[in-house]
Structures are given as structure tokens and as C-alpha cells.
């Protein structure tokens, strides 16, 4: 197994980041977005601003419409009401397709493509010649802990490695906004912790904007500049919590007083919602 490289990081990110998220025009703005499916209101009047370079995590009880939110941002579904603004322009669902890099919960690797060719699926669809695409992917392999595995097929890889191939596919598709839907949900907690630190490192280096769905409160706090807590049906943004923890973040952070404070605030908000989804009436 190759080691994930977690290089020493510079604290440069912090200062720029806080500034970015408070000033300038948002890269994505959801205004009054609602979506219904038959009798169920999946999203109701959702308002979110996402700024360049931000890492935002979304957390909420199951069935709170997180996936619907992602599908709308990815352009896979159109909202019934409200508008989506991307880089300052109002866009319909079709206008968002191909504009954000989307990573679903499952890796959805193609079993007939090896690691290298799975990673380049998205940029190949864009029209990058295969040889050139492979060359780009090859240079990224070590960073994703996949060096030497370029000729392996998905069934020969562990769950963590498959997830890294899927992440690499997402990163290679160079869009400013990345949507990650519980990418580490299926991994054991040790691998997950490693992957979180590694993701932060990659994010720092590639300077992308991330919207990240998770079920895990620790994960939500550990990664985020801002945590959005969603309410149970109908899905709304119930709480927006800025996380003012220093970066780079290490494992020791998880036991710090500040972290625990954030956790208590989020747990409280989340518990209320979970109770509601148990007894909706």
C-alpha cells in the first residue's frame, strides 16, 4: 500500500480564506430554491451563498433533501421555484451540466477501465485527447496515493483506493466548484480520518471551492469553513455555523475545546431535527 503523502502545510490559506468568504460575488447562489416530489417537499426556500475557495459542509438527518440539493447544483434536476446563480449569471439546470465537478456517494468506476482511464473519464468527455489526458492523470497519481496502480482495474482495489480514484476523476475535471456527496461514508473510521486530512491538503493545494455532504458531525466540523445544518422535511437550511478553527488542521484538533463547543452547538440543532423525522406529525 502506498502511503498518502500529508506534506507540511503553510498557514497561508487561513487569511485569504476568511476574506474570500465574506467579500466579492459568490461563485454560486441559491435563492429561494424549492423542489417537490409528488407529496414530499424535498427542499423549501433554500438560500445558500458559496464563495470562492470556501469549504462548506452540509449535514442533516436522512431524507432532508441533501441529495436533491446536490442534484440541483449539478444541473441534474431543475428547481420548482427559486433561482440558481452561477458566477453571477442566473442559469437553468442545463446550463449547470458540465460546470461543476460532481462526486456521488458511490465511486461508480467503470469496471472495464483501469485506474488511469477511470480518472480521465470526465476530461475525455470534454474532448481532451486520450494520450494527453493520461499524461495529466499520471502526474497526479502520487498525490492521490495511486502511484504504481495505474494499470489496476477497480475490482483489484480497496474501498479507500476506489474512492481516491473517484476523487481524482473529480479533481481532474477542473471546475471551480466541487460537489462531494458523502465521499467517505463507506470507509472505516481510520481510513476516513486519513482521507479527511489528505483531502484538506489537496484542497489547499488545488484551491477549489467545495460543497461537501456528510452524516458525520466530526467530519463536518473538521473539514469546514462553514457548516450548514439542514432540517428534516421540508429541507431548509436551519443553521449556518462558521467554523473558526486554525488551518492546517490535525488530529489533535478534534479534542480541543473549540471543536467540542462547535460539536455541541451542531448536535443540539441536529438532534431536534432527527427527533422530528422520527415523529413527523
Amino acid at each position: 500500500m502506498p502511503q498518502l503523502s500529508i506534506a507540511p502545510t503553510s498557514p497561508a490559506r487561513d487569511s485569504t480564506n476568511v476574506k474570500d468568504s465574506t467579500s466579492g460575488e459568490p461563485i454560486l447562489r441559491l435563492a429561494g430554491v424549492s423542489k417537490r416530489f409528488a407529496q414530499v417537499t424535498a427542499l423549501d426556500d433554500v438560500n445558500i451563498d458559496i464563495h470562492r475557495g470556501e469549504f462548506i459542509t452540509v449535514i442533516g438527518p436522512s431524507g432532508c433533501g441533501k441529495s436533491t440539493l446536490f442534484n440541483i447544483v449539478a444541473g441534474l434536476e431543475a428547481p420548482d421555484q427559486g433561482s440558481v446563480m452561477h458566477k453571477g449569471a442566473t442559469v437553468g439546470a442545463k446550463g449547470l451540466l458540465g460546470q461543476v465537478s460532481f462526486m456521488p456517494q458511490q465511486d461508480l468506476l467503470m469496471p472495464w477501465r483501469n485506474v488511469l482511464d477511470n480518472a480521465i473519464v470526465a476530461i475525455e468527455l470534454e474532448g481532451t485527447p486520450r494520450g494527453q489526458a493520461r499524461q495529466r492523470a499520471l502526474t497526479m497519481l502520487p498525490e492521490f496515493g495511486l502511484k504504481g496502480f495505474e494499470r489496476h482495474y477497480p475490482h483489484q482495489l480497496s474501498g479507500g483506493m476506489r474512492q481516491r480514484v473517484a476523487l481524482m476523476r473529480t479533481f481532474l475535471f477542473e471546475r471551480e466548484l466541487m460537489l462531494l456527496d458523502e465521499p467517505f461514508g463507506a470507509l472505516d473510521s481510520l481510513t476516513r480520518t486519513m482521507m479527511q486530512r489528505w483531502l484538506l491538503e489537496i484542497w489547499r493545494r488545488h484551491r477549489r471551492t467545495v460543497l461537501f455532504i456528510t452524516h458525520d458531525i466530526d467530519e463536518a466540523i473538521f473539514l469546514a469553513d462553514r457548516v450548514l445544518v439542514m432540517s428534516a422535511r421540508p429541507g431548509k437550511v436551519k443553521l449556518e455555523q462558521r467554523i473558526e478553527l486554525p488551518r492546517p488542521r490535525g488530529t489533535e484538533l478534534v479534542t480541543s475545546a473549540d471543536f467540542v463547543h462547535y460539536k455541541r452547538v451542531l448536535l443540539e440543532a441536529l438532534e431536534e431535527e432527527s427527533m422530528k423525522s422520527f415523529a413527523p406529525h
Binding site: 444541473g75 441534474l76 458540465g98 460546470q99 460532481f102 456521488p104 458511490q106 461508480l108 468527455l125 475535471f173
Partner: peptide
């Protein structure tokens, strides 16, 4: 075919032919 596979390619901007 898992529809999520198709959604993923659509999100990358793939055409129906692709």
C-alpha cells in the same frame, strides 16, 4: 444500468451519444 451512472456522466456534460 444504475441511473446514477448516467447522472454522473451527464453532470460531466456528456451528450446522449457519448
Amino acid at each position: 444500468i444504475d441511473p446514477r451512472r448516467i447522472s454522473l456522466l451527464r453532470s460531466f456534460g456528456a451528450s446522449p451519444g457519448q
